[in-house]
Amino acid sequence: MSALLLAQDAAATVTTGEAIAFWILGPLALAGGLGMIFARNAVHSALFLVLTMLSLGVIYLVQQAPFLGFVQIIVYTGAIMMLFLFVLMLVGRDSSDSVVEVLRGQRLWAGVLGVGLAVLIVGAVARSLTDVRPVGLSGDEANGGRGNVANIGDKIFTDYLFPFELTSALLITAAIGAMVLGYVDRHQRGKKTQKETVEARFRGEHDRPSPLPGPGVFATSNSVATPALLPDGSVAPESLSRLIEATAAEKLDSEREAVAGALPGPDARALAPGKEDLP
């Protein structure tokens, strides 16, 4: 009887080593968290989060949860955080937040509510756990007997078998979902390859086998509104885009005619050049 009480007391108290570990790891975790939210650069945030997660992993180890501790370090810190960094690199590591907060009062209220939440939870925990005596994980059901990992395996494949199987379905679904979201079909809008287009042109599926002529290039202009000239000097009508305003095309009519030689040349007896001679 007294031995049991003693054992409970032992479990209730924390060894000096654990206390030292907590007082080192706890502030580290907090510092990581704060660093994460204050770092301007997203990569720095991710690295601060890695620090927090590593601290937490060690804390799990200290808290007699070696399996979770290693999973935390390997899966979380190793895999998930690396995934984060990977996406960050994809998105662009220089996409740091601007300093200006667009939502009025957002930071102030976030701070106020955060402090309020912390005070509430801390107060509640402090108040409700004053009389609680921790049992500790030395029993056979826990870390005694075959040890932590074996007991957890036991639990997962007996008591928690069905949830565990559900998580497998969840993971599969997540993987497929990620694939669906990430997949980009390059042929989805019926885009033909260059080869297919050429073959289609010669099969007569297009108006003409060759592409439309490009715009002309004059000394004064090289815009798309500039008509291309055929070898005989006349304007190639196909070179004028229909999308360009008709007025622009009409404006060029006289120019085009002048180029085509349709207009009469300057009169020899004229004292001043004709209007149409002006560019």
Binding site: F22, G26, A29, L30, G33, L34, M36, I37, A42, S45, A46, T52, I59, F84, V87, L88, V91, S95, S96, D97, S98, E101, Q106, R107, W109, A110, G111, L113, G114, V115, L117, A118, I121, V122, V125
Partner: peptide, 21 residues
């Protein structure tokens, strides 16, 4: 410690704009 970390996370969600953060 857990409460403080949770609060930090919550405040972070509110103040950061980068979706990844």
């Amino acid at each position: 410690l857990s409460a403080l970390l949770f609060t930090i996370g919550a405040v972070g969600v509110l103040v950061r704009r980068n979706a990844i953060v």
